[in-house]
Computed example of a mutant assay.
Amino acid sequence: MNPYLPILLILIVGLALGLGVSGVSLFLGPKKPNTYKLEVYECGLPVTSSAENRFSIKFYLTAILFILFDIETIFMYLWSTAFDYLGWFGIVEVGIFIATLAIGYIYVLRRGALRWD
């Protein structure tokens, strides 16, 4: 028996379940469109195409900060579980990773993403 067969089965069941539930909601869900529901929504701002109503840079800096620390948490957990097997290579690798995170943290700090007005 192929060892990847259970994974393939789970993917097929998950895909079928997701498509099935979406299809059922499409056919059985309420359909009451009106002009208010069909308007484009831009974070509460009126719909314009001018450059003066663009998003603030703080949205992007907050997203960068989230990704930075999210990836750090995952990587540090995996590194700590394999610490015995990695030896000096693992220590050097984590040192480089922490230095990269420090550069990202300093960038976000200087751009003012941690100041909430």
Rank of each mutant, 00 (worst) to 15 (best):
S56I: 09
S56D: 15
I57Q: 04
K58A: 09
K58H: 13
K58W: 07
F59G: 03
F59R: 11
F59E: 10
F59V: 15
F59A: 07
Y60E: 10
Y60H: 13
Y60I: 15
Y60M: 13
Y60P: 00
L61E: 07
L61Q: 01
L61A: 01
L61I: 08
T62W: 03
T62K: 09
A63S: 10
A63R: 08
A63N: 06
I64G: 00
I64T: 09
I64E: 08
I64R: 05
L65E: 12
F66S: 10
F66L: 15
I67Y: 01
I67G: 00
I67N: 04
L68H: 06
F69L: 07
F69S: 04
D70G: 06
D70Q: 07
D70R: 06
D70A: 10
I71Y: 02
I71K: 02
I71S: 02
E72T: 12
E72Q: 10
T73H: 03
T73C: 04
T73D: 06
T73L: 10
T73Q: 08
T73E: 11
I74F: 03
I74C: 03
F75R: 03
F75Q: 11
M76R: 01
M76A: 05
Y77T: 15
Y77V: 15
L78I: 12
L78C: 08
L78T: 10
W79N: 05
W79R: 04
S80W: 09
S80V: 05
S80T: 14
T81D: 11
T81G: 03
T81N: 11
T81K: 13
A82K: 05
A82C: 01
A82R: 00
A82M: 07
A82V: 11
A82N: 06
A82P: 00
F83C: 01
F83Y: 08
F83Q: 11
D84A: 05
D84K: 04
D84I: 07
D84G: 04
Y85G: 00
Y85S: 05
Y85L: 06
Y85T: 12
Y85Q: 13
L86Y: 06
L86D: 08
L86P: 00
L86R: 01
L86S: 13
G87H: 02
G87F: 00
G87A: 01
W88D: 12
F89L: 15
F89H: 09
G90R: 03
I91F: 05
I91P: 00
I91V: 14
I91W: 01
V92M: 09
V92R: 06
V92E: 12
V92A: 13
E93V: 10
E93K: 01
V94E: 08
G95R: 10
I96P: 00
I96Y: 05
F97R: 05
F97H: 12
I98H: 03
I98M: 12
I98T: 15
I98V: 15
A99W: 07
A99F: 11
T100I: 15
T100L: 14
T100R: 02
T100P: 00
T100D: 06
L101A: 04
I103R: 02
I103T: 13
I103C: 04
G104M: 10
G104P: 08
Y105K: 03
Y105E: 04
Y105H: 09
Y105R: 02
Y107T: 14
Y107W: 08
Y107V: 14
Y107A: 09
